[in-house]
Simulated assay, not measured.
Amino acid sequence: MPQQSALEFEADLELIRSAAVSAGIIATGFFRQDVKTWTKDNASPVSEADYAVDRYLKATLCGERPDYGWLSEETADNLDRMNKDRIFVVDPIDGTRGYLQGDDSWTVCITVVEKGKPVAGVVYAPIRDEFYEAVAGGGAYLNGEPIRRRARMGNVGPIMPAPGAVHRELEARGISFVRGPAIRSLALRLVQVATGVLDIAVSRRGAQDWDIASASLILEECGISLEDVCCGKPSFNKQEIRHGAIAAMVEDGLKDDIHEVLRNVYGCPTNI
């Protein structure tokens, strides 16, 4: 990686780090309050908090980097982003449903993507006071310290929260596992594979760029792969931003089974 690019990535990380902290303050101001909510076309909820954070982030980030593209869950997509070498990929509040229910596992996710690859990313869980960040080639950090997996306690199977249909098919194959904690933010769930809270994290088909871009970089910098079970390592800032089912795991021993089960349960998109 050219030194100049590495320095540029660090500058972008500093920018999105600062923006995420301020966005977390904005979102926390609405948390566990009586906020206005709406239902989007895909039946998922959105709130005035999501929109407030989105407006702040777009004004702040695009104001500092006017030549970057923009892709956010709460902004109408503009395919002009595909003509940009670098773009911001943003989820103002990942885990909105849990956020509205008072759950503390929601996050602010911001990624800088260059030519399809994440080069700087943050996942910030304000209520938990957990700030995950990474820059390409520079390692991954939690609250300023390098991320290290905690030691496994006892002789138990892999810890893996997943939808019931996935668990049932794994059980039918004789694969033992611990169901693990429910974590409403997909990004936060994925990075817990890096910390050792989880051993395997999966997502049903339909995750979008903003759900997984930051986590994919953080995991990669920890030496952990995140893959679309239909087409391998995800690429970002394409016309189609949805992905097949996603899996991240520390060890590859169960990879073939997990990937096959996810393909069986969710199928694969026809446009990949």
Rank of each mutant, 00 (worst) to 15 (best):
R150C: 15
R152W: 14
R152P: 15
G154H: 02
G154N: 04
P158K: 07
I159Q: 05
I159C: 13
I159K: 06
I159V: 13
M160I: 14
P163Y: 09
G164W: 02
A165N: 02
V166T: 15
V166I: 12
V166W: 07
H167Y: 08
H167M: 10
H167E: 11
L170P: 08
E171C: 14
E171D: 09
A172M: 08
A172Q: 03
R173W: 00
R173N: 10
G174K: 01
S176V: 10
F177Q: 02
F177D: 01
F177R: 00
V178N: 07
G180N: 06
G180T: 03
A182F: 15
R184T: 12
R184C: 12
R184D: 09
S185H: 09
L186V: 15
L186M: 11
A187L: 09
A187M: 02
L188G: 14
L188I: 14
L188V: 14
R189I: 06
R189L: 07
L190A: 11
V191Y: 05
V191E: 08
Q192G: 14
A194R: 01
A194M: 00
T195H: 03
G196V: 12
G196L: 07
V197N: 12
V197A: 14
L198G: 05
L198K: 01
D199V: 03
D199M: 02
D199H: 04
I200T: 01
I200P: 04
I200K: 03
S203L: 07
R204L: 09
R204N: 10
R205M: 13
R205N: 09
G206D: 04
A207C: 06
A207H: 00
A207S: 13
Q208G: 11
D209T: 08
D209N: 02
D211S: 11
A213F: 00
S214I: 07
A215E: 00
S216H: 03
L217A: 02
I218E: 01
L219W: 01
E220N: 05
E221K: 00
C222H: 00
G223C: 12
G223V: 08
I224Q: 02
S225Q: 04
S225D: 06
L226N: 02
D228C: 08
V229Q: 05
C230P: 08
C231W: 03
K233C: 08
P234Q: 07
F236K: 04
F236D: 02
N237C: 14
K238G: 11
Q239L: 13
E240V: 14
E240K: 10
R242D: 09
R242M: 13
G244C: 10
A247E: 05
A247C: 08
A247T: 09
A248N: 00
M249T: 01
V250P: 11
V250Y: 06
V250D: 08
D252K: 05
L254V: 10
L254R: 06
L254I: 07
D257R: 09
D257I: 05
V261M: 03
L262H: 03
R263N: 11
N264M: 13
